[in-house]
């Protein structure tokens, strides 16, 4: 009796700790990052977000400049607009390419592929989601970048006179489009697996009703199954988008590591916020004033905020979508 009560007590305490831990981890990360990032903001102000130039200054100079009470290496200026643009643009390309493919795969796995075959294909989707990002990055370097540079790029560039951002110099194949495609390949398994499970849970009866009314399988998916699974699928897309926003290694390998200017077309080299943090960490350590490290922390805070905002925005969209159930007449 005593043992059982003790066990129950332990379980209750453990469950309680587990329940509140996400909040505490988030608070801890946010507080530490904010504290670390503050000097960079005091030094640079809002031009941190509008500036195009990222320069950690002369780390070997003997003199130290002081601005707003913060010490910095001479010539140091931190502007991350190119990184923000690179992050948003590459992740949006990933979403645009990845979402339709993911939803079609999920739909096919649930409704079209014979169950016996789906039993074999479905686990492969999870397998794809588990491949380390550096492997995707290497694929991007060896296979995708040359294809973009030599085949896809020249072909797309012909449309440049009609559609902005498609024309202009194609470059080496390392840049925005390649990053976006690699990210798309990485988020497709995540969105596919989640939406597949959601579609499989949609009640069969309304779909049968639609089929019995003489709707095609596409029409019943589009008008009946998808609306029933919509909230969850938007959640799955956000999950994929968050992954694309924060992806570091694969993007670092194929982005072309550009800084100090904004992408001029679809093939321009870029950097994202996450890849910049990884790429510049080593040299930032050489900054005796530590301001470069603080600046990288401020990038991390910004990334955190952007990820939270996209989450919030998507949740808002779902709310609005629920209120308007799309009536006619």
């Amino acid at each position: 009796m005593g043992i059982a009560r003790l066990r129950s007590k332990i379980f209750q305490v453990a469950a309680g700790i587990a329940a509140v831990s996400p909040l505490f981890v988030l608070l801890f990360v946010a507080v530490v990052l904010l504290k670390d990032a503050l000097p960079a903001f005091r030094y640079q102000g809002f031009s941190f977000y509008t500036g195009l130039t990222w320069n950690m200054g002369n780390a070997y100079a003997n003199n130290v400049v002081v601005h707003n009470g913060v010490q910095a290496a001479p010539g140091a200026t931190f502007g991350i607009l190119p990184f923000i643009v690179g992050t948003l643009a590459s992740s949006l390309i990933a979403i645009v390419i990845g979402v339709p493919i993911s939803l079609l795969s999920a739909f096919a796995l649930v409704y079209k592929v014979p169950p016996r075959l789906a039993k074999w294909i479905s686990p492969m989707v999870e397998l794809l989601a588990g491949i380390p990002s550096v492997v995707y990055g290497l694929w991007g370097v060896i296979v995708l970048a040359p294809v973009i540079a030599n085949q896809v790029g020249p072909w797309l560039a012909k449309l440049g006179s009609v559609i902005p951002f498609l024309g202009g110099s194609i470059g080496s194949g390392f840049g925005l489009l390649t990053s976006g495609i690699v990210l798309a390949v990485m988020i497709i398994p995540i969105i596919t697996a989640t939406s597949r499970d959601l579609l499989a849970q949609v009640p069969k009866l309304p779909i049968e009703g639609a089929r019995a009314l003489g709707m095609t399988s596409y029409e019943s998916m589009r008008h009946v199954a998808l609306p029933l699974a919509k909230r969850g699928i938007i959640g799955a897309i956000i999950l994929g988008w968050s992954r694309a926003l924060g992806e570091t290694m694969a993007v670092l390998m194929v982005s072309g590591n550009a800084s100090n200017y904004l992408p001029t077309n679809l093939y321009s080299p870029i950097s994202t916020m996450a890849s910049t943090i990884a790429a510049l960490l080593d040299s930032a350590m050489n900054d005796a004033t530590s301001l470069s490290i603080h600046a990288l922390a401020l990038i991390a805070v910004t990334l955190l905020v952007i990820t939270m905002l996209t989450n919030l925005l998507a949740r808002l969209l779902v709310q609005v979508g629920r209120r308007d159930i799309g009536t006619e007449g």
Binding site: P206, H223, I325, G326, G329
Partner: peptide, 8 residues
């Protein structure tokens, strides 16, 4: 088995 949309 109504569809997830308005009555109309």
């Amino acid at each position: 088995n109504p569809f997830p949309m308005s009555i109309l």
